[in-house]
C-alpha cells in the first residue's frame, strides 16, 4: 500500500524468469556435474524457495482480523532460514561433494 505498482510487477517478472531458469537448470544438473551448476542451484533454489515461502506466509501467517500484513515473526524467520541454508549449501559445495554429488551418492543407496 502506498508503494508504486511497478514494485510488484517487477518482482512478479523476476519470479517467473527465475522459475524458467530453474526449469532449465534442474534437468541439466541430472546429466552434467559441475561446480558452477552446484552454486547456481544453491542460489536459484533458495531464492525460488524463499519467494515461495513468502507467498505461503502471506497467505496463512497474516494477522487475521488485525490486518492483512504477514506476521513479522514468520517473515523474519524465513529470511533467517533462507540466508542460513544458502550459506550452508555454499559451504557444502566448497568443502564436500556438492549438491549434484550429494543427490548422486544418495541414489546409490539401495
Amino acid at each position: 500500500m502506498g508503494e508504486p505498482l511497478t514494485v510488484y510487477t517487477g518482482h512478479w517478472k523476476a519470479e517467473k524468469y527465475l522459475a524458467l531458469g530453474l526449469l532449465g537448470l534442474v534437468p541439466t544438473a541430472l546429466f552434467v556435474q559441475h561446480a558452477a551448476i552446484d552454486y547456481a542451484l544453491a542460489a536459484a533454489m533458495i531464492l525460488h524457495g524463499h519467494w515461495g515461502m513468502k507467498a505461503i506466509i502471506d497467505d496463512y501467517a497474516h494477522q487475521g482480523k488485525k490486518g492483512r500484513a504477514a506476521t513479522p515473526f514468520w517473515t523474519n524467520l524465513s529470511i533467517g532460514v533462507s540466508a542460513f541454508t544458502f550459506a550452508t549449501l555454499c559451504y557444502f559445495n566448497y568443502n564436500d561433494v556438492g549438491i549434484c554429488g550429494a543427490v548422486r551418492l544418495l541414489w546409490t543407496i539401495t
Binding site: 542460513f84 541454508t85 549449501l89 559451504y91
Partner: peptide, 19 residues
C-alpha cells in the same frame, strides 16, 4: 524447501563428511 533447510542444518551439526 524445508527438507533442504533441515539437511543443510544437519550437515553442519553432525560430525563426519557426507560420503
Amino acid at each position: 524447501y524445508t527438507g533442504l533447510a533441515a539437511i543443510a542444518a544437519a550437515t553442519l551439526i553432525v560430525p563426519a563428511s557426507y560420503p
